[in-house]
Each structure stands twice: as C-alpha cells, then as structure tokens.
C-alpha cells in the first residue's frame, strides 16, 4: 500500500524486502523517506502503462488523451438531451472490453439518481460493442474461443452493478458504503453517477450545509478513485448563471463544486452537431471535438463533417 516503500523491494541484488528493511538505516536513500510518498518518476512509469477507457468516439478519445482516465474524477455536463446518460451507459459497457482486446476488462458501478438508465439501451450498446470489437480483431486473425465466450452482451449486462438512489441521504450512504464494497469487488474499474446534482438541487434551505456535504462527498470520491484505481465519472446538469450583467449556462452546483473534479467536459450543441469541450484538465489542453449518438452508441460524427478544433 505504501508506494514509497516499493523502492526497497527491488530484488535485483538478491535483497528481499525483509532484509532490505533491516538494512534501512545505512542503505536507505535519503530522499525516499517521506512517509508513503511516491516520486514523480515512479508515477510517470505507472502513468505510461495505464490504460484508458474508450468513449467509443475516436475524436473524443483523442482530445481526452486516450479516453477516460483511471484514478481521476471526470465530470461530464450538458443540456438535457445532449447524451450524458448515453455516454454513461457507453462507458459502463466499454470498461468491460477484455484485456486481450485492449480494454480494461473491469466491472462498472452505475449509481442512478434520476431513473434514466435504460437497460434495453444498455443491451443494444453492449451488442454493438461486442460486434465492433470482434470485427476489428477478426481482421488481425484468430480469436481464441475462450475470448470469444467472454464477448457476450449478457455477460456485459451482468457486470454492470446498478444502484438506484432516491434521496441525497441515500446517495451519500451508497458512496460511504462503496469503500467497503470496492475492497471486496476489486474488478470494478469505473463508477458512474447519473446525475450527481439531481438530488442536491431540491430540498436544501441551507446552502452552506449543501456546500459542506458536497465538498466532503467530492473528497470521498477522490479517495475512492485513487485507492482503487478507479475512474469516477460524474454526470451533471446545467443551470443559468448571472455574471457581468448577462445570463449564461454553466454546470449546476455552483463555484465551489467546480473544483471538485479533476477533469471537466462540457457537452453542447453546435448547430445540429453534438460537441464536447474540455474545460479543465491537468494533463491535456483545452480542445473540442464533435461526437454523435447512434443506434450503436457514442461514435465519431460522419466523416464529411469531421473536424477537431484545437483551441
């Protein structure tokens, strides 16, 4: 658990971790004794082999730096009907693409606060995903029969763990419970909350209390993401905000919530084309790309209109 100690378990010189530990006072490199801290060098080597969860849309993956990142909290927001839930379902399916096909082979947790999760739609997307993956790998040649067995939409649906919550107390309770749950279910690789804001937008007289509860929840989600190598995806609604004399759209839950995520993606309409815009990210630059919602799920927009605008 303490990554900083990993240095000492280097067995290249035949030293086992135990004896290395005994030799610590003399041999310990000075810079490594910050308790449990990890150097950026170690993190870089981990980051470089880390796989990302594809969104199904190549253009969107490109601007995200390969897809949705594990160990990070990503917030996706946009106006109603733009495809937030579609992206949520797509990610819950895509996270399960097995290792052999370049995916993560993990399970998904889906926390539904609005009741908008459609299981028929999930089946449809899973089926399309299976077909796509198999047709791509068929070009490369043989696919082992055991791998083929894993590629079944029914298996995909069985690995989506769905929680339906109806009040913000329940939402907090589920998130608190997840720490224990995830310690047992190590396969879970993505946590989707659809939507994180819905239950917090009503029944609150005391807004200061709401801010406290929300900021505590965001820290818990950060902790889950980090300690279980989990991608956390929060879907959020929009609200109108009044600044400098005019109204404009922004994501719900206010200014202090905007700091609660690692990455923030805004979905919007550009004429009749769906677009995604990276508003905030520590590792990739702001950029926007188009995407479309098809019967198969989230895909690139039709090539003739395809463009990536780098900002």
């Amino acid at each position: 658990m303490l990554p900083g100690r990993a240095i000492f378990s280097n067995r290249s010189d035949g030293v086992t971790p135990m004896t290395a530990h005994e030799r610590l006072p003399q041999n310990r490199p000075i810079q490594s004794d910050f308790f449990g801290a990890q150097t950026a060098w170690e993190m870089l080597s981990e980051e470089l082999v880390q796989k990302h969860i594809t969104t199904g849309c190549q253009d969107l993956d490109d601007i995200l730096g390969g897809g949705i990142h594990c160990k990070e909290v990503t917030e996706i927001g946009g106006v109603p009907g733009i495809g937030k839930t579609q992206i949520g379902i797509q990610l819950a399916v895509n996270v399960q693409i097995p290792d052999e096909f370049g995916g993560l082979g993990g399970k998904a947790i889906y926390i539904d606060t609005e009741g908008s999760f459609m299981v028929e739609r999930a089946y449809q997307i899973a089926k399309a995903c299976v077909q796509d993956v198999l047709s791509i790998s068929a070009i490369d040649g043989k696919v082992a029969e055991t791998h083929r067995k894993k590629m079944n939409p029914n298996v995909f649906l069985a690995n989506i763990l769905y929680f339906r919550v109806c009040s913000y107390t329940e939402q907090i309770a589920v998130i608190n419970y997840l720490e224990k749950f995830l310690a047992e279910e190590r396969d879970v690789k993505i946590l989707i909350i659809d939507s994180v804001s819905f239950l917090f937008r009503q029944d609150f007289d005391d807004l200061a209390l709401r801010t406290r509860i929300l900021s505590e929840m965001s820290l818990k989600l950060m902790k889950l993401a980090k300690s279980f190598n989990l991608a956390v995806v929060l879907l959020n609604q929009v609200t109108t905000k009044f600044t400098e004399g005019s109204f404009h759209l922004s994501l719900a839950l206010g200014d202090s919530w905007s700091h609660a995520c690692t990455n923030r993606v805004i979905l919007y309409w550009n004429n009749d084309e769906r677009c995604a815009y990276i508003e905030k990210s520590p590792s990739v630059r702001s950029a926007s790309s188009g995407f479309s919602v098809t019967a198969e799920g989230i895909r690139n927009i039709i090539p003739s209109h395809k463009k990536i605008r780098i900002l």
Partner: peptide
C-alpha cells in the same frame, strides 16, 4: 531542490511535468 506535492484532487500529472 526537493519538492513535496500534497494532492487532494488527483490532479498531479507526471506526464504533464515530463
């Protein structure tokens, strides 16, 4: 010098530093 980075938002990106 040595730098200690205490991160509360999983926003430390060693790739970005590199």
């Amino acid at each position: 010098g040595e730098v200690m980075f205490l991160d509360t938002g999983n926003s430390f990106s060693s790739k970005r530093i590199a």
